[in-house]
């Protein structure tokens, strides 16, 4: 008994890949991905992808970092251990700005990197497309692929494979593993 995990189809060029993506988008497919050796301008729109929420994640952590930086300095300098440094007041907010800014940037950078990993579902150690023998050598060289995952609501192995053929896909494979 084999369990289907998805379908993989090969396309001849970035233009046909884009055309396929638009067709999949217009036919209501959600869980599909396009694979190409290089980034293709306009592909996000062709696949119907929404803008990433990463910016809001970064903003949240950046502000959090800034507050931590400012809060820690104000608390330690003016409450926990008040001390006069070069004639400045206990609450010398001007001198806290640099660390506040640095923590703001640090938290933003970490949120950007790790948030990107999270949204991309990385690290991912395996993916059904690697069951295909043709995929790995070609996709980093001259191959253009569409993969549709089995948990897509419209997925049904044979009809999805036929649909991919009808929009110009070749070497259509149903990716399976032993159940």
């Amino acid at each position: 008994m084999k369990k289907p995990l998805g379908v993989l189809a090969e396309f001849s060029s970035s233009a046909t890949l884009m055309y396929a993506a638009e067709n999949l988008r217009d036919n209501g497919y959600k869980k599909f991905d396009c694979h190409s050796p290089f980034p293709i301008h306009g592909m996000d729109a062709a696949m119907g992808m929404k803008r990433s929420h990463l910016g809001f994640i970064i903003a949240f952590f950046a502000i959090l970092g800034g507050l931590i930086g400012f809060g820690l300095q104000s608390w330690s300098h003016s409450i926990a251990y008040p001390i006069i440094i070069s004639g400045k007041p206990y609450f010398a907010w001007q001198s806290y700005i640099i660390i506040t800014f640095e923590l703001f940037v640090l938290f933003a950078a970490f949120a950007a990197v790790f948030g990107m990993f999270k949204l991309n579902r990385l690290p991912m150690f395996h993916h059904p497309v690697f069951y295909s023998d043709r995929f790995s050598p070609k996709v980093t060289n001259d191959g253009f692929y569409v993969s549709i995952e089995a948990n897509d609501p419209k997925f049904e192995p044979d009809s999805t494979a036929d649909f991919l053929k009808s929009i110009g896909g070749s070497n259509v494979e149903i990716l399976e593993e032993d159940a």
Partner: peptide, 12 residues
Amino acid sequence: AGSQYFLIWYAN
């Protein structure tokens, strides 16, 4: 602007 102000504020 902040850098200009900050160094002058610090050195006093």
